[in-house]
Amino acid sequence: MANKKMTIIASKGSLDMAYPPLILATTAAAMDVDVTIFFTFYGLEIVKKNNADSLKVTPLGNPAMPMPMPIPTLVSSLPGMESMATAMMKSMFKKHGVATIQQLLDLAKESGIKLIACQMTMDVMGYKQSDMIEGVEFGGAASWLDIAADADINLFI
């Protein structure tokens, strides 16, 4: 029986939003699904060299983010709040035995997940192919569509 196929478009580069594509991709690979992740816009930050563990999260504009105490929106915009929120989330993840983004990325590469970086957004943001981690391929909308047209699951995150 041929393997099922899945593609994910990863368009977000904050610490919290880097998790869903990588969790789903690595789990799918473990369930014998052939996976492709297309990194575009801020999702490129996940596959930039030495950047996976530098992603940040901010409570600004996200009233759902649990904080140790209620924090007014204006306070969330102060310098240091982003670092604090990031450190808090990382420590919560660690405490609960959740893998880091770098670990998930390594597992994704190890399990043969195809990683494609969007060339157009790289050009717009001034990123060179050499700025990206080893093993990433480069392409555009047509590259993704060609794979997605034959896939069983396609997600935009």
Binding site: I23, T27, A30, M31, V98
Partner: peptide, 9 residues
């Protein structure tokens, strides 16, 4: 002590 998706992986 491990959380999703590590036990499966």
């Amino acid at each position: 002590g491990l959380s999703c998706p590590l036990p499966i992986l």
